[in-house]
Simulated scan of single mutants.
Amino acid sequence: MPPSFFIAMKSTISLILNIFVRCARVCDASYIGETGRRFGFRLGEHRKDTERQEEKKFTRSERKQSESQINKSAITYHAMQENHVIDWENSKVLDRENHLLKRQIKEAIWIRRSGAVLNRDEGAHRLSHIYDQLLCLCIVAVPITSDTDITPESFLSLQEQVQTLLVAFQSQQQTIEHLERRIEEVETENLELKLSDDGAARASVGFSASLSTTVALGDSQTIMFDTIISNDGNGYDSRHGHFTAPITGLYAFSVTVMCHGSESNLHTSIVKDGQIIGKCFANGYSSDNGSKLVVVQLQAGQMVWVEHAVDPSGYKIYGDEYSSFSGFLVQAY
């Protein structure tokens, strides 16, 4: 059975793809990740990065610098260290998901279920280990089809597996319900602690981040404003470009985007959990910039981010701190 890499991708629709690897010895390792770029574009990035390192000849100092760059890509590092050849042509789609949070949960499930993975973390979403037993049982369970020969012994075994699965599921449901109640209690206690005697909220939540470098954007790509100016409450994640509300309340968000030279118009959107709540436009024929301010209610845990609207891929947003994303808590509930 050939070893494989699995990658979760996002375009207009999100994909999970399978990248095969040929090697001299058995390798069951896999790589799983999610991105805002299209399948072909992201796959091409992995391929170019790997092949560039394979073909390049280095001086001693260049080799040391190259090893630092390789370490940034788990796929390239594995291919170089193990001398594995990646079978790019046989890559295939395994799953699809539009919603950002659902896609990140699927990514975490794939990582957990795959066992031996090259990933250096458990994904963008931290999946609780209380689901491990349930995921393990889902892998073991055998689907019954019209072509399957069912003996009394195998049927009894399947019944026992189903019963065990149901018991585990009910146990997990009870644990989840208990944790949800406890989360609500903690959130209430936390908010009460942040309120002064006269009822004025003392909670401090706000962030401001800018874009350091010019970026070519794909369709519906999340824009990651990587230079953090302020981040009270630690709600903004520069790694993924989204803000997560630490407490329930009324929030204000603003975005400013600048076109790169006179190449193209630039359409961007402020998005709340997959729903567009504001749009921003910049005229690319005069290095124009556009701004948008929205005020919106958020429940604790909901996310807001800025993404490129449906335009031809490759349009660029100007960096050098000209483009920015900010937000703050107006009133806690």
Rank of each mutant, 00 (worst) to 15 (best):
D149Y: 13
C259N: 15
S291C: 09
T164G: 15
E55A: 10
E67R: 15
A201K: 02
S204D: 11
Q173F: 07
T213V: 08
A309G: 11
S291P: 05
E321D: 14
F169R: 12
R182I: 01
G123V: 01
F39V: 07
G261C: 12
V304I: 12
D132I: 01
S14F: 07
R103K: 09
T227N: 08
R22E: 13
N231G: 13
I150P: 03
E184P: 00
V295A: 08
V330A: 01
V21Q: 12
V167C: 06
T145F: 01
M258G: 10
G235V: 06
C136R: 09
T50D: 04
V215E: 14
P2C: 11
R113W: 00
H178E: 12
L134P: 04
L211Q: 04
H129D: 13
W305C: 10
Q81C: 06
N90Y: 01
G327D: 02
V295M: 05
H178Q: 12
V117N: 03
R47Q: 14
K194E: 09
V117W: 02
M1E: 13
S196M: 04
A252R: 14
F169Q: 14
E192A: 07
S11P: 12
D232P: 02
Q302G: 10
T175C: 07
V215W: 11
M303G: 12
D121R: 06
R63Y: 15
A79W: 00
G249F: 06
K106F: 03
Y236Q: 06
G40K: 04
I270E: 02
T50Q: 04
L191F: 06
Q163F: 13
R239T: 12
R63E: 15
D87R: 01
I75A: 01
A124W: 02
L211H: 02
I247D: 04
M303E: 14
T164I: 08
R181D: 10
H260Y: 14
N289Q: 14
T59Y: 06
R113T: 09
G314R: 07
A216I: 03
R63D: 14
E185M: 00
Q133G: 13
